[in-house]
Design a binder for these strands. Structure first.
Length: 311
DNA sequence: CTCCGGGATC
DNA sequence: GATCCAGGAG
């Protein structure tokens, strides 16, 4: 008899699963529907606005994104508007949200949409994946939430539901293993290329389905120990205090506040003061210089003649 | 695989 | 103090 543990013994099909396909689908609609979150970026048909939400939500909690999304859309209402903005203006709007690279990537994605897609977003999966900062999850999210198209959308809440319901005793379950189940439960939506109103039945809508999955997953995590820890892709992250990441964020904040530009020496002095104030040794000029070069290389800063300015 | 932000929450 | 977060890129 097969052991219940180990990724190799994952149920290969529904027949071996702890729950039938119909049972799982019913449970998701029921549990997710009962805990529906009426978030501002839901049930909107603006693909750009959906993209902004998806990128903001990458590794970032819903409660934090709520405060940023509305403000960001007010300032950059369209992909063209974002493409026309300066990187520093975008980064300023992003401050406090975290993972500042996402802001640069999102602006570059808007640039690409303005240049190659007439200021709109493509529906095609591969064209979405070609956009900076858009991976499998974000692309599937845009397709489901903006275009109501079916697909495989796997992120932490979706993992939570499938791991909890279908792999309760398994460890290190890969997304590759979940994929067929996720694909097989997503409704197909209306016919490809179809026009007009969406199907009157919400249960045919991939958008409503994934909302239900997200809401059920988010709820589950408040009830049981995070099932996503049993994902093969789960990884703890190093602490933030005293990290290189923290120095990056400090340097970015510093330079954004100095549109006229700073010398590398001035950046080094500010960083030294910050570190010492935190009870840590001063990193010194060498570290600050490498930090500036790195951030400049990623497009955060412009450096000319030893002067560091916001990009 | 590691790196990337930053705050709420426990 | 740890833990987590609608992930993506190198």
């Amino acid at each position: 008899m097969a052991s219940a543990k180990g990724a190799a013994l994952a149920p290969p099909c529904w027949d071996d699963a702890t729950l039938s396909r119909a049972q799982l689908i019913e449970r998701v609609w029921s549990e997710g529907g009962a805990r529906y979150r009426d978030l501002p970026w839901r049930n909107i048909d603006d693909p750009y606005a959906v993209l902004v939400s998806e990128v903001m939500l990458q590794q970032t909690q819903v409660a934090r994104v709520e405060r940023y999304w509305t403000r960001f859309l007010g300032r950059f209402p369209t992909a063209d508007a974002l493409a026309s903005a300066s990187a520093s203006d975008v980064l300023e709007m992003w401050q406090g949200l975290g993972y500042n690279r996402r802001a640069l990537a999102l602006k570059r994605a808007a640039d690409a949409c303005a240049a190659h897609h007439g200021g709109t977003l493509p529906r095609d999966l591969d064209q979405l994946l070609a956009l900076p900062g858009v991976g499998p999850a974000t692309a599937a999210g845009v397709r489901a939430f903006a275009f109501q198209l079916p697909g495989v959308y796997i992120e932490t809440n979706v993992r939570t539901v499938f791991l909890h319901e279908l792999f309760p005793q398994h460890q290190k379950v890969a997304d590759r293993t979940l994929e067929p189940f996720v694909r097989d439960t997503c409704p197909l939506g209306r016919a490809v290329g179809g026009e007009g109103a969406a199907s009157p039945d919400v249960r045919d809508d991939p958008r409503a389905w994934y909302y239900a999955l997200l809401d059920y997953g988010a709820y589950l995590k408040s009830q049981v120990q995070n099932p996503s820890r049993r994902s093969a892709h789960y990884a703890r992250q190093s602490s933030f205090e005293g990290s290189h990441r923290q120095k990056r964020s400090f340097a970015l904040r510093l330079v954004l506040d100095a549109p006229e530009g700073l010398s590398v020496a001035e950046v080094a002095m500010a960083l030294d003061a910050f570190e010492q104030q935190q009870g840590r040794p001063a990193p010194g000029l060498d570290v600050a210089s490498k930090l500036v070069d790195q951030l400049a290389g990623e497009g955060f800063f412009l450096v000319d003649d030893g002067l560091v300015r916001p990009a």
